[in-house]
Structure formats: structure tokens, C-alpha cells
Write a protein that binds this DNA or RNA. Structure first.
Length: 576
RNA sequence: GCGCCCGUAGCUCAGCAGGAUAGAGCAGUCGGUUCCUAACCGACAGGUCGCAGGUUCGAAUCCUGCCGGGCGCACCA
């Protein structure tokens, strides 16, 4: 467990000032520093931190404005001035001290890092074999990968797991369909496309009563053969389909910078299913219901029981997730295991956690479903069965194509347009997803996803590239923070405040499992950066000390943007 | 029917462990480049925070009810 009293050496930007302010307030109000929550004023003119004095005044039986005034007059905090505005006590950091602190922090590799050390498992992406990854998978992949990086940055020992959907009766259907309509040449040319076609064809033919019955029988037989574990034709085909699918998925993962430590599909837990069921049975929580084995969850406030085994004796989704969770616990004794899965599966997670609770495990509440909203289309839902899908690769390709046109137009001299177009196009798609609250459903809109101006990934990439450009043209080394006079940078508090809030944004994004919080902060940093280099000429001022100081500022900005974008999985090109 | 999520500017969204005149971006109007990339900056305009109650010194934020949209509700995953 983390030790909250452990001094943290990591640079934390504005937090460096919050601690003494809270300590001074705690002493003045005779309260514990932990009970004092400093607010971030909405209006930047009100300073960097604020304390509404209402509740403290009430406790002390005083008038809030009076208390604020009294505190403002008596508090002595190094490098921080306090001012009372009505019942509010506002704190402003000395401009030079602010620049010095943040410049020093943001210049370091570990800006916003913490030393946690806990084991955090992150399950994300988890697409189904034999189907294309579509826009729906984008969310799990991009949010999960970003969260994994955030935890990693905060010092967790992160284990990234891809829980592939590679098992279940659906593969019986696919095998049956392959036997009827499979074409070797087509499979070679476009594996997932062909497998999807077979899947769609199956569901098309299934509607026919006579065909449906015989297809269903063939599918059941095929899955049975697969499940037998023998090295038969079904198994060999399944392995092949899996490998072909993985190769396709990997192309997407490479583009999205999504990596996994463990590639464990549902099939990986196949030989642990029996023992899991036995374990559940031995816990005495399983009962019979119409021939099926279930765990009743009424006592946990869940009306729907959790199905462990069907009346035909086959295992289910929940059984496999239970086996997976138990296996992971045995292997890692994790502090938390996060599942980045759509909100439509909330009940499933509530159920299988409740089962583990009923079993008396000590770790059931370390499992956490991190839900996110569905991707919808203006025209309505897409359906894999009907073959109506928008492939993720197509989304990325279109974004890259558009980015390529824009690079061509804006920077025809660019030495490597293909690379930068890929970075910008993919970056736009990733950032667009991550800049929205994960819990809300998103209506997919090409115009928005392909937008490169305003609050977008490409505009941040652009700011980063501009910084790189200035540093390139400087043709001199960037002075280290200790070499510059921070007073020369005191005229850009907006930049330092924006940068100084980066560590808190990283922390909060991780705590709330909400990458959007970091994305929003990066946008603020980007805007502050644009204003900075717009208003403050860096090169050619004739003042060497000033130039050095501003170069250091640009470098801090560049580093923080690269760090933040990197955490989100958005590439940071040095020229665009 | 029951459960969960969402409803803020024309559009897309922040803000919601209560706090100061509700903020961005896009679209609209206007302005900015003899100067490190204008994928930028600035100004104007735009809001009964779904509706109605309640709690509070104070509610977009918390509670209740309603309306609207989405998702889920045992032998699929």
C-alpha cells in the first residue's frame, strides 16, 4: 500500500505551492491540513488557488468576509500573496517564483511522476477473432492504452492484457460456414474480410428454417470438435483463423501505439474452467435452476442470477471471466484489475464481482469495470451480423489521407509527408476520442473526427512542432533551468500556470480513469503556448539572456506537450 | 416493468466530492502575418444549464418526481 506520509521527490508543478498554503491555513485555522481543500478559481485573475471562507467562518462564528480579510492580513507564506475578495481568499504565486518552479519541474523527464509501485492490471481492446476491429473497439483500445501509460507514469507496475474473444459457440458457426462456403484464395487475400463474409452468410442462411436447423447442427458439432482439444481439422482451422486475425489486429495496434504484455484470449483459460467451476461449487454458492448451474445474487441486490453452466453443461462468458480473474489473482495479487469494456456490460461485471464476493474472496472489489459509452452513428446502429461495420482501419486511413492533403498544402517542403500524415491523421482520431468523457456515448461524425483545427490533436501537434522549429533555428544549446534568470520569464504566468497544472491533471486522470482530464489540460497548455510564442519573440531579440530564458521556456513547453501527448498515445512530430 | 447512463450556446463538448459575472472549440461577423510554420492569435455575437419541487447563506453541481434519448435485464459475448 502507498505510504501517504512518504515525501515525494517528484516534481509537481503548482503543487509545490499548494502544500505550504494549506499548511499555513491549517495553522491559522487550527485544523488538519488534509481537511483544507484549495480550489482552482474559474477566473485566472483571482490567482492560482482560492479558499471560500464560508464553512470556516461558520465554524468560528465569524463573518466570512471578515475571516477572509483577517487571514489575508495575517498569513505569511513564502512566495505567495493572499488577498481577500469578499468571502473568498485568493492566493497568487509570485510570478518569478512560479516561473522558476515550473520551468525546473517541466524540464525533467519525470514531470508529474510518482512512486507508487502497486500492481495494476489493465484489460483493454479485447476484440473478437475473425471480425474486423471497428470504431467501437477504438474506445477500449485507445482509452485502455492511455490509462495503462498513465499508471505506468505514476509508477505502477502495469500489466496490459488483451482478452481476445477467441472462444465460444460462435466459432462453431464460423467453422460450419467455412466448410460450406470457404474460399482459400479469398482467405489469403483478405482474411478478416472473408471470415466476416462467412459470418454474415451464416446468419443470412440461418433465417431459413430448414437451412437454419442443419447449419445449427453443423455449428454445434464443429464447436464440440474444437472443444475436445484434439488436434483435428477444426482446431487447425481455428488456430489459423486466430493467427490471421491477430496479424490484422497488430497492424492497428502498431498505428495506435497499443501494446500488450499478455495476449490471452478466452481460450487461454479453457483448461482452468473445470477447476473454476469446482471451486465455485465448493464455495457452496452454486445452485441448480432448470438444469443450469447458477449463483443467486439477490443477497447482493442483483435480480438476475449469474449463469455458470448451461443446462447442456457448457460454460459461459461469465465462467470464463471468473476463471480469468481467479487466474490473474493467483498470478499477480494485483492492487487493482481494470476492465475497459463498454457500459452495456455493466450487469455482467456487477454479477461476476458479486459471485466472487459471495465466494468470500478478499479481492473481489479490486476488480473494476471502467465503462465507456457506445459509438453510435447518425443513421443508427451498425451490426456485425448484417455486415454493416465501419472498420477502424478505414477511419484511420481516411484521416491520414486528409492529413496528407493538408500537409501538402501547408508545408509543401516537408521532408517526409507520409510519416507526418500518418502521425497527424491517427493523432487526430485518438485525441478526438480521448478528449471526450468516456462515459458518454459518442455519435460518430466524420466532420468532427477529421477536424484538425481548434481543440484537436493536430493543433497540439502543431504547437509542439513550432517549438521544435524554434529550437532548431536557435542553433544553440537550450540553457538548463538553473542557468536562466526566472525573472525574465515572469511575464508569462498563464504559460506557467497551465504547465504547472500538468501533474495534477495526470494524477486526476488516473484516479478517475478519465484520460479526458489530461487531454483538456493539454489543450490549455497548447493555447498558452501559442499565445506565448505569438507575443514573445524568442530569437533575434539581441538580448542573449532573454533569448536563453525563452528558449528554456519553449523547451519546457515542448517537453510537456510531448510527454502528455505520448501518454495519450498521440504522436508528436517535430515538423509538420 | 425494473436497473444503469446521458440531457449545458445553432453544432460538438468542458465545468458537477455545492461557492465569485456558467467556459472552450466549430459554425457566424470583424480584425491580425515587413516578425521563429496563420493547423495560430484577438474581438463581437450566442445560454430559461431538459422541466418542476426540495435541501442550503449559496445549486449546472446534492435529493425527489416527471419528460426526452441510450443501454441492459439467465442458458450469446
Amino acid at each position: 500500500m502507498p505510504n501517504p506520509t512518504m515525501p515525494d521527490a517528484a516534481p509537481h508543478g503548482l503543487d509545490a505551492f499548494a502544500a505550504p498554503i494549506r499548511a499555513a491555513l491549517a495553522a491559522a485555522l487550527e485544523l488538519d491540513a488534509d481537511t483544507i481543500q484549495l480550489e482552482r478559481p474559474k477566473n485566472e485573475a483571482h490567482g492560482e488557488f482560492a479558499l471560500p471562507c464560508f464553512r470556516f467562518a461558520k465554524a468560528a462564528g465569524k463573518n466570512p468576509a471578515e475571516l477572509a480579510g483577517h487571514l489575508a492580513a495575517t498569513l505569511e507564506i513564502p512566495q505567495v500573496s493572499a488577498e481577500a475578495v469578499g468571502p473568498f481568499l485568493n492566493f497568487q504565486i509570485d510570478r518569478t517564483a512560479l516561473a522558476a518552479q515550473v520551468l525546473g519541474d517541466a524540464g525533467q523527464e519525470g514531470f508529474g511522476r510518482a512512486a507508487d509501485g502497486e500492481v495494476t492490471l489493465v484489460e483493454y481492446s479485447s476484440p473478437n477473432i475473425a471480425k474486423p476491429m471497428h470504431v467501437g473497439h477504438l474506445r477500449s483500445t485507445v482509452i485502455g492504452a492511455a490509462m495503462a501509460r498513465l499508471f505506468d507514469h505514476l509508477g505502477h507496475q502495469v500489466v496490459r492484457i488483451n482478452h481476445l474473444g477467441d472462444w465460444g459457440s460462435q466459432f462453431g458457426k464460423l467453422l460450419a460456414a467455412w466448410k460450406r462456403w470457404g474460399e482459400e484464395a479469398e482467405l489469403e487475400a483478405d482474411p478478416i474480410g472473408h471470415l466476416l463474409k462467412l459470418y454474415v452468410e451464416y446468419h443470412e442462411q440461418e433465417k431459413d428454417e430448414k437451412e437454419g436447423a442443419s447449419l445449427d447442427a453443423e455449428a454445434k458439432a464443429a464447436f464440440l470438435a474444437l472443444e475436445s482439444g484434439e488436434d483435428n481439422e477444426e482446431r487447425r482451422l481455428w488456430v489459423r483463423f486466430t493467427e490471421l486475425s491477430l496479424a490484422e489486429f497488430q497492424k492497428i495496434y502498431d498505428r495506435l501505439d497499443a501494446r500488450f504484455d499478455l495476449l490471452r484470449g478466452e481460450s487461454w483459460y479453457e483448461d482452468k474452467l473445470d477447476s473454476t467451476v469446482d471451486w465455485l461449487e465448493s464455495c457452496g454458492v452454486v445452485e441448480d435452476s432448470d438444469g443450469a448451474r447458477i449463483v443467486d445474487l439477490e443477497s447482493e441486490g442483483i435480480k438476475t442470477p449469474c449463469l455458470i453452466k448451461t443446462s447442456h453443461g457448457t460454460t459461459l462468458y461469465a465462467t470464463r471471466d471468473l476463471a480469468a480473474a481467479k487466474s490473474r489473482w493467483d498470478e499477480f495479487q494485483f492492487a487493482r484489475c481494470l476492465y475497459f469494456v463498454g457500459s452495456e456490460q455493466k450487469l455482467h461485471f456487477d454479477q461476476f464481482k458479486a459471485v466472487l464476493k459471495r465466494c468470500g474472496t478478499s479481492w473481489w472489489d479490486r476488480l473494476e469495470h471502467v465503462p465507456f459509452g457506445l459509438v453510435r452513428f447518425p443513421e443508427g446502429k451498425l451490426s456485425t451480423r448484417a455486415g454493416r461495420v465501419l472498420r477502424l482501419s478505414e477511419v484511420l486511413d481516411r484521416a491520414v489521407e486528409l492529413a496528407r492533403e493538408i500537409v501538402e498544402e501547408k508545408n509543401p517542403e516537408h521532408p517526409d509527408k507520409d510519416t507526418v500524415a500518418e502521425q497527424v491523421g491517427v493523432g487526430a482520431v485518438i485525441f478526438h476520442d480521448l478528449s471526450h468523457a468516456r462515459n458518454k456515448e459518442v455519435v460518430f461524425d466524420w466532420k468532427e473526427v477529421l477536424s484538425f483545427e481548434g481543440d484537436t490533436g493536430p493543433s497540439l501537434q502543431y504547437t509542439h512542432a513550432r517549438c521544435c522549429s524554434i529550437l532548431r533555428r536557435a542553433e544553440r544549446a537550450v540553457p538548463s533551468p538553473s542557468e536562466v534568470d526566472p525573472a525574465l520569464l515572469a511575464d508569462a504566468p498563464e504559460l506557467w500556470v497551465a504547465l504547472g497544472r500538468f501533474p495534477a491533471a495526470v494524477r486526476e486522470a488516473a484516479e478517475k480513469r478519465e484520460p479526458m482530464i489530461l487531454a483538456q489540460q493539454l489543450l490549455k497548455i497548447g493555447t498558452a503556448g501559442n499565445v506565448f510564442y505569438r507575443e514573445k519573440r524568442v530569437l533575434g531579440t539581441g538580448d542573449e539572456a532573454l533569448e536563453g530564458a525563452r528558449l528554456a521556456a519553449i523547451d519546457a513547453l515542448r517537453r510537456t506537450l510531448a510527454l502528455g501527448l505520448g501518454l495519450l498515445g498521440v504522436p508528436a512530430p517535430t515538423e509538420m
